[in-house]
Structures are given as C-alpha cells and as structure tokens.
C-alpha cells in the first residue's frame, strides 16, 4: 500500500520522503491549506463554521476540509460523506502544541474520527508539518491513527486515501 502526506512547508527531498515511507509528500505549493473560500486552485479548506465548510465541500477545487480546533461539526462530516471528499485530521495539532492543547485535541480528534467512521466519511491523517521536526514517518502515522481509535486496516487507509485523489 502506498502512503501519502501533506506538509505545510517546502516539500522535503524525495529521498527523505521515501525513507520515511511515503510515495509522495505534497507541500504548501502543491496543495495549500486555506482559511475560508478565497482560493480557486486545488486546496484544502480549514474552517470552524459549518456554513463555510459545507459551501467549500460543494466546490470542485476543494479536495477536503480541516475542522478548526477539531470540533465535532456533525453536519459538515455528513456533507463530507455525501460529496465523497475528505475529512483531514492534522497530526500537527497533537505533536507540535503544548501539553494542555494536545490533551484537548486528542479527546476531540477521537470523537471526530469515531463519528466520521460511523458516518462512513473518508478520513485522511496528514502531518501538516511546519518544519522538519514535526514530520513523522508512515509507521508513526499508522500508530497515531491507531491511537486515535482506528483499527489496523482503517489506519493504513487513512494514510493512503490521498492516492485515490491524485
């Protein structure tokens, strides 16, 4: 199974990406994360209101959404399922934040993943690393997905989902 990742920085060298176990890593130039509906290029939309997220999901250039602060917005998750797009969970919210925020995000992300799995929405786990120290290998990402409540098969699928879109 091929694994993919999205980072919020320059793409690391291909050799490094392969070493970490990814077929391809997309950087902020190829697939940016934007707040709101400002971009007309291929992007991921991050937002905290269901109105904006639902409108974003109906756009062709948006491949998926990131819910701000990992709050469970049921309507948007169901919209992800209906539009056959992706709900992205960012590991950056767990690994590169202070302890208190990490604990809160862990709890919320578990709830979000659980609801998305039951709704049969496609979920993708991405590192969204802002620097080299926030990067994770595919093995670590799979363990992180399992920690969030996914089983082995789901965990691998969560790192592989991006391949179907490319």
């Amino acid at each position: 199974m091929d694994y993919f990742d999205i980072v919020n920085m320059e793409v690391p060298e291909k050799k490094m990406g392969n070493l970490l176990g990814y077929k391809k890593i997309l950087g902020k130039k190829e697939l940016p994360v934007v707040d709101g509906l400002s971009s007309n290029n291929k992007c991921i939309v991050r937002g905290g209101e269901s109105g904006i997220l639902d409108r974003a999901l109906r756009r062709n250039n948006v491949i998926g959404i990131i819910i701000k602060d990992n709050e469970l917005i049921r309507m948007s998750v169901e919209e992800v399922k209906e539009t056959d797009k992706l709900l992205f969970l960012s590991v950056h919210d767990l690994t590169c934040v202070d302890t208190r925020t990490r604990l809160r995000n862990l709890y919320r992300m578990r709830g979000l993943l659980s609801f998305a799995t039951h709704s049969k929405a496609k979920v993708s786990l991405i590192s969204l690393a802002e620097d080299e120290s926030c990067l994770l290998s595919s093995i670590q990402m799979i363990e992180m997905a399992k920690f969030l409540g996914a089983n082995e098969e789901q965990a691998k699928k969560m790192i592989n989902n991006l391949g179907e879109i490319q």
């Binding site: 070493l19 970490l20 176990g21 080299e132 120290s133 926030c134 994770l136 290998s137 093995i139 670590q140």
Partner: peptide, 8 residues
C-alpha cells in the same frame, strides 16, 4: 528542536 522518525 529535534524530530524522531521511526524507519523500521
């Protein structure tokens, strides 16, 4: 600041 990556 450092990152640890599990390879195998």
């Amino acid at each position: 600041k450092i990152g640890l990556y599990t390879l195998k």
